[in-house]
Design a protein around this nucleic acid. Structure first.
Lengths: 161, 161
DNA sequence: TAGCGGATGATAATAATTATCATCCACGAT
DNA sequence: ATCGTGGATGATAATTATTATCATCCGCTA
């Protein structure tokens, strides 16, 4: 049914071990200091089967480094995203965005400037209508959000690099 | 190219007019008072081509009702969502969620409890790999977020109703 | 038209995140 | 191995988004 669509924990565990082994090397290559706090945050994140918020990472890292600051966890997570070692699941966490269009449709979101556009993409619906569930989730009333880069941000990002 | 995937503004305009005409009737049917503020928020939202945050709706409504409170706008938008006259584009706006898995994959999100699961769904990638852009958005590095209801929340929601 | 109950406006409270800044420590040079 | 420096951290304040509180107001039914 929907087993095969779930990414197995077994696979994640192996993946985590591999990622951690390379982490210090990657930091060094990017000129980032290897601090115990940074490594701890990375380890906790990469070992998480769920998709934790800063607070949750903080709680776990704290068990090993009782003096770590929540601000450091926030900073570190953002750093990890910036260097490509992690990513935010959603770029739209800052403030709620509302849509008056209740007809079924989907969205593309620019991960940089957070612009949103409605899209007509029957392919998604076709794809999903074929299934009742997805990883145990009931697909009734689902909507798809595609994360991408808008035209402006694409050129802007190119200039930065 | 990607024109056909965009929902046209022309269509939206017609849709907005239709929605507004039925709004008061729907409020009445649900036992909600028809206040000028409520109608104004609904009108601004449904006329918005973009996907505004509360602050943006507030700014527009304020031009007509200078005394309206930002809290009222927040409340009204949530009410509209609750009765199905609008929806939040993302259910994950409250706090940022991080993912240590940088391998390309997608997510299902429970719109009720905000649980997130990684999903392996090559169909999405196949669908998107065929296109370079989507509504002017560059699809490199995109990720898909499917909004749905998890098993627990589905039964919980069923009880409520 | 009266009056009840929901809706609103003003404001305080809460939650998440970011900014500030003094201290600290990882790391390359010595 | 030691030193000096710049980035990293911890403590804290500030900001931003949102929700709660509560007295007043007004849409709606009788």
């Amino acid at each position: 049914m929907d087993r095969p669509t779930l990414i197995s924990d077994k696979w994640r565990a192996g993946y985590a071990a591999e990622r951690l082994a390379e982490f210090t090397a990657r930091c060094r290559a990017r000129g980032l200091a290897i601090t115990p706090q940074r490594v701890a945050v990375m380890r906790v994140l990469v070992n998480s089967g769920d998709h934790p918020r800063a607070e949750a990472v903080f709680a776990k890292v704290r068990r090993e480094y009782p003096n770590i600051s929540l601000a450091t966890v926030h900073r570190t997570l953002e750093t990890l995203c910036a260097i490509g070692e992690a990513r935010k699941v959603t770029p739209l966490h800052d403030s709620a965005r509302y849509d008056g269009n209740t007809a079924p449709h989907h969205h593309v979101v620019c991960v940089r400037c957070r612009k949103i556009r409605d899209i007509e993409m029957p392919e998604f619906s076709d794809l999903l209508h074929g299934r009742q569930t997805l990883g145990g989730f009931q697909l009734l009333g689902c909507s798809v959000e595609v994360h991408a880069l808008c035209r402006e941000c694409r050129s802007a990002a190119a200039k930065e690099a």
